[in-house]
């Protein structure tokens, strides 16, 4: 599991536990119904709930929006790798052996339909991915820290051989 997937697992689990506790509390509360009508108070407090939600979502937005993968630059010492997706194979063309520690710029294109360039590390953990659509060049920047054989799987449905669209490339120690 990747670092990001681990964060999602923890955050989602906590949120689900809280949600389950609240759901159960609401369920149990109906066994002791209130005599008086408090609907008016609860209705007015909905504004407070709206404010809480806006604050929470804004915090999540500010905490995550700066980690988008867009516009990454590999810098002057980049290693360039050409990737071509075609039904149902990846051609990965690295003029020099790919090494760890230096940014790699993948320049990916498709010859036919949309494909998804999903890269799994030697432990078979999904570490990054991007879409590759025809007529456009997709630039993906990544710096490898681990040497070994990486697996590429297609992560956008591309037809009958989609699940056969698997390839590998090797990253050598610097």
């Amino acid at each position: 599991m990747s670092h990001t997937a681990a964060i999602i697992t923890v955050a989602y689990s906590i949120a689900v536990l809280i949600g389950a506790a609240i759901s159960f509390a609401v369920f149990r509360s109906t066994s002791r119904p209130l005599e008086e009508d408090r609907s008016g108070t609860w209705s007015r407090r909905e504004t407070t709930w709206l404010v809480i939600m806006i604050v929470v979502l804004f915090a999540l937005l500010m905490g995550t929006i700066f980690y988008v993968p867009y516009g990454d630059s590999a810098g002057p010492h980049a290693q360039y790798v050409r990737v071509t997706g075609v039904q149902f194979a990846w051609a990965i063309d690295a003029p020099q052996p790919i090494v760890t520690g230096r940014p790699v710029e993948f320049l990916a294109r498709s010859r036919d339909v949309a494909h998804g360039f999903g890269v799994y590390n030697p432990d078979d953990v999904l570490i990054f991915q991007a879409q590759v659509v025809p007529d456009h060049e997709q630039k993906i920047v990544h710096t490898f820290s681990q040497a070994g054989v990486y697996t590429v799987r297609c992560l956008e449905f591309c037809g009958a051989g989609h699940d056969k669209m698997v390839s590998t490339f090797v990253v050598k120690p610097a």
Binding site: T4, I8, L60, T64, Y67, G116, G118, L126, L155, E156
Partner: peptide, 12 residues
């Protein structure tokens, strides 16, 4: 909906 998290789960 969160771009930074979607990277890990998109199309899985």
């Amino acid at each position: 909906a969160t771009i930074a998290l979607d990277v890990a789960v998109h199309n899985t």
